[in-house]
Amino acid sequence: MTGRKSKKIRLCIYGALAVLLILIAVFSDRLCPYNPYEQNLAIAYNPPSLEHIMGTDAYGRDMFSRIISGARVSIISTLVLVVIISVVGTLAGTICGYFGGLFDTVVMRISDVFLAFPGLVFALAIAAILGGGVSNAVIALAFVSWPKYSRLARGRALAVKEMTYVKAAKLSGDTPLQVIVRHILPNTIGTMLVTAMLDIGTMMMELAGLSFLGLGAKPPIAEWGSMMSSGRSMLQTYPWVVLSPGLAIFISVAVFNLLGDTLRDYLDPKQN
């Protein structure tokens, strides 16, 4: 089997798994065997059984249903976050790289400021100012995470704009906007897509981290990070309360990271 063919197969497998996770997130309402918010103290902290395959939590809620339901918040929020930062960062970086000048200087200095701090610490501060909640956590992380994309896109735009085919496009009468849309962005998008794919895992962890610290989703919303946080004191006595959302995060992060890695290998002409 050729290297490229095996990469294609791996890409299909990880792509299918990622799509499966997204479908679970989208259709979580229909997939939950129990109401994830229905409390039944009579069965609190029940261990995994055939009836409740991941056990129950402190309020007797079915963990499996809460994991499925939590996929919507955790995965969809992460995807929204990654789309926002990759689109904003790519556009800002491409415009900076292509036009240069004052806009480039201002945007790059702003991005330097963001890059000078550890991202999660900065996001914590912003989320704390904005107040808790999933959308504020997404805004906080988006605020600190776009500069990586803008730096990358700027570098690509600087390289691509010197290519002979961009000169040829100008001779065809392309306006600067047409040059960007037709030639710069299509030749940048591969790198940005791979980075975004690899970032899904990181962002999922950071979003879960903010929720774990009480700055993301608020109880009783089923979200993996906050579920881990609320169950952390029971790790030794009722480990399934913490391990179930941990396993969900681990699987999702692994799938999206493997997809990103495979996509990078697949798109890299030097490896083909």
């Binding site: 290519m163 002979t164 496009a169 001779l171 009468g173 037709r182 030749n187």
Partner: peptide, 28 residues
């Protein structure tokens, strides 16, 4: 108009000749 030294580099690698040859006309 101009013809460049390296023909391969003068075409966008992701576009067919049809796209590149008709680009100037589409712009007009």
């Amino acid at each position: 108009q101009m013809i460049f030294q390296n023909p391969l580099e003068s075409f966008d690698p992701g576009k067919t000749f049809e796209y590149s040859l008709t680009e100037a006309m589409r712009n007009r």
